[in-house]
Simulated scan of single mutants.
Amino acid sequence: MWKEFRSQFKGYLFVLPAVLFMLILIGYPLIYNIVLSFQNVDLSNLATSDKQFVGFENYKKVAGEEAFGISIGNTLIYTVGSVIFQVIIGFCLASFFSMKFKIAGFLRGIMMISWLIPMTVTALLFKFMMGSGEGIFNQMLLNAHLIDEPIGWLSSPEVALWSVIIANIWVGIPFNMLLLSTGLSSLPQDVYESASLDGANWWQRLVHITLPLLKPVLMVVLMLGFIYTFKVFDIVYVMTGGGPINSTEVLSTLAFRYSFSDFEFSLGAAVANVLFLILFAISLVYLRMMKKDEGI
C-alpha cells in the first residue's frame, strides 16, 4: 500500500503544475469574469470596492441592444460560411494530394504557408488587397472587365462581412486539408479495389465509400472548425473593427468594444459569458459525439 501511495503521489506531483496553470491562468479569469457580469463596474469604480451587485441586469441590457442581435447573426454567418468552404476546399485539395504525384509534398508545403502566417499579418494583407481604390482585388476584376467600378470590400455594409469570410477561408483551408489528408490516408484500399472491380465510378466511390468511412474525421473537423472560428476576434478587428455600421460586429468584438472603448466592463463580461456558454454547449456536443464513436 505504501508503494502504491508513493507511486500515485509522484503522479500527482507531475500533474500539479498543469493543474496550477489551469486554475491560475484559466480558472481565475473565468470566475472573475462571471462575477463581473453580475456587478455594475465601469471606469469610475473599477479600482474601488464599490461594485454594486445587479443580478441579471447586465444580460438584460445587452440583450436589448440592437448590436447584440446583429453580432450573434454575424458570428453565425461568419462561422458557417467559413467552415463550409474551408471543409469543401480542404477535402478537394486533400483528395488531389492523395494521388501522390512527384511534387505533391512540395505543393502541400506551399499550401501550409497561409496557416503559418500570423493572423494579424494575414488580416493586414487582405485589408490592403481589398482596398477600395488601389486594392489588387478591384484591379484584377476591373482589368478582367468583370466590374465597372471598384467594390467597397471593407466599406460597404453588404459586402464587408463576406470580405472577412474570404480572408478566413484562405487561412483555414490548410488546417482542414491536413486533417482530411490524414483521414484519407487511413482508409482501407482493398475496399476501393473491390469497388473498381465491380464497376463503381469515381462519384459512386466518393458517395458510398469515401464519405461514409470518413464521417468520423469530417465530424471532428467540422466541430473543431466551428469552435475555432466562432470565437474569432483578430481578423475582424484588424480588417474592419466591427464596422461599417455593425455589419461585421461579432460577439468577441462587441465584448471588446463594451470593455475597452465604452469602459462598460460588466456589459463586456456579459457578452463574453454568452460567447463562452455557446462554445461550452458546442464542446459538450463534440465530446458526446466522440464518446459515441468510441462506443463509451
Rank of each mutant, 00 (worst) to 15 (best):
S132K: 06
H208L: 03
S37C: 02
S252L: 10
A200P: 06
L16I: 09
K291I: 01
V232A: 13
M130K: 06
P188S: 03
K3L: 08
A281I: 14
W202T: 03
M112C: 04
D42E: 09
L284Y: 01
I70E: 11
F230L: 04
L224A: 04
L116D: 03
Y59N: 09
A167L: 05
H145V: 05
F9P: 06
S259T: 14
V191E: 01
T122A: 08
M99H: 15
M22G: 02
F263W: 06
F91I: 05
G199S: 01
L43P: 00
Y28N: 11
Q39S: 08
T182M: 06
G90D: 05
C92A: 15
V171N: 10
I24A: 10
K100P: 12
Y32G: 05
L287R: 08
L46N: 00
I151L: 11
E134L: 11
I282N: 02
G27F: 07
T253K: 03
L254I: 08
V62Q: 09
L142N: 00
I72V: 15
F101C: 12
L161T: 11
I26T: 08
G131A: 12
L277S: 08
G55W: 13
Y59T: 03
S194C: 07
P150N: 13
M119A: 12
L76V: 15
F226Y: 05
I282S: 08
V207M: 07
T240I: 10
V217G: 01
S114G: 13
Y192F: 11
N201H: 06
H208W: 06
L25G: 07
K102W: 15
R288K: 15
W202I: 06
I88T: 13
M239Q: 02
G241N: 05
L46Q: 11
L161P: 13
G133K: 04
K292Q: 10
L93G: 02
M239E: 03
K291T: 02
Y286V: 03
I70F: 08
N201A: 02
I166K: 01
Q52E: 14
N246K: 15
P216I: 00
S186R: 14
V285L: 15
G81N: 05
E57R: 13
I169L: 10
F53E: 00
A255N: 07
W203S: 07
N143P: 01
S185V: 00
P244E: 09
S132I: 11
L178I: 14
I235D: 01
A160P: 12
